[in-house]
Nucleic acid binder design. Structure first.
Lengths: 210, 210
DNA sequence: TTCCCAATCAAACGATTGATTGAGAATTGG
DNA sequence: CCAATTCTCAATCAATCGTTTGATTGGGAA
């Protein structure tokens, strides 16, 4: 029994889905501020503006709550991936689009990568979280694998480039940058430019290997 | 009325420094297993084999305990840096030595990088931890900056290579690899080999062979 | 109207948390 | 040997944690 009709009286009761959405958002904000070790169910309830018992009505346990946050990240990445279609673009253009997208994500929702890292780390020891986060991170990296693989085929990138290793380097550098951009002297443009130079084929070499 | 046999030398006491060392080691092991959010002073005391009050005698607060762990990491990195002198070696040799060192560290003490990442993340919000961890991470990256800078000078690496960006890419890729090497198909050798190819000068373009 | 049920809350529960107390054992310097 | 110091522990504290209970609300169905 699901009704699409939004509540005509804001401040009254919200549907279960809306509540769960607000709970996940509040939890993400708190994790960003004080980390997973500072996450308290009462603080989440207070930020949403509901009673602690109401929180447990919608999300039974804290474990399920963290899983809810993980799933909210998954859905957000899924939506982001479906939003921009890269069909018909060259590998280098797609790579640069990924760089721009990532930068925008870090700028618009700075807590996203921080929470993502925290949950990936938690997923290393919590199978329930790992089942959500590992495929998510793999998917992101596989996008780069695909870009590099096709870029090698058409001569954009070095012929001796290892797509998997290059993708690992790229995602590692990007996530590491966003994690501590405060202490980095190098700008994001310097980082992405160096990544391009690292993988791109040398223009002075013959592009036609036949 | 001694408790259930913690010390291999009954009747013997450990000095304050040894105790603090054992406490830091136990805390690191626990952080590796259950994360910072699962770190409990009682668990640390139990692993060391001492009473909870004894733990608080040596380390007054939990906050000081986390700082102690951070400092133990700093000392370990400092000792590691001083252990192997790289004087007289070529930039490429030094880079490969860094790769080997890192791999050995991950292999010998797998909890090291995980705990390092956890404390760096905590240092983002806790100034006391950040004061220890940020310089530590910067120091590691600066080692690569130095290697790349000299490698550019002597023609080992690309002339258009940005040492800071390249170092950021390298540390990011390495730390990201060690954080989740379980789900990576690419081996460590593939990763380091790709890093070398990414930064090394093209052999067909030997521009300055003087 | 009467009933049902998702949603909500005040209050509290049992357990755990970091931290403290006071007394005593072990060690050290004289 | 003694006294001072360092170190240790059983017992305990106050606070907070995640979770539960029991009751209430309000809107839609019967």
């Amino acid at each position: 029994m699901h009704q699409d009709q939004p509540c005509p009286f804001p401040g009254k009761r919200e549907s279960g889905d809306e509540r769960r959405l607000a709970i996940a958002a509040a939890a993400r904000a708190i994790i960003f501020e004080v980390g997973l070790e500072g996450l308290r169910t009462r603080d989440i309830a207070a930020r949403v503006g509901i009673n602690i018992a109401t929180l447990h009505y919608h999300v039974p346990t804290k474990e399920a709550l963290v899983a809810l946050v993980a799933d909210s990240l998954r859905q957000e990445f899924k939506a982001q991936a479906q939003r921009n279609t890269r069909a018909g673009r060259s590998p280098l253009e797609q790579l640069r689009l990924e760089f721009v997208d990532f930068h925008e994500s870090v700028h618009d929702t700075p807590e996203l990568i921080v929470v993502l890292s925290a949950l990936i780390e938690k997923g290393r020891r919590d199978p329930a979280i790992g089942a959500i986060m590992t495929p998510l991170y793999d998917y992101w990296r596989l996008q780069f694998v695909d870009i590099f693989r096709r870029g090698v085929s058409d001569g954009t990138f070095r012929p001796d480039l290892d797509p998997h290793a290059a993708a690992l380097i790229t995602t590692g550098a990007l996530s590491d940058y966003s994690r501590q951009w405060t202490s980095f002297r190098a700008s994001y443009e310097q980082l992405t430019a160096e990544l391009e130079r690292a993988f791109i084929a040398n223009p002075s070499l013959s592009k036609d290997p036949s």
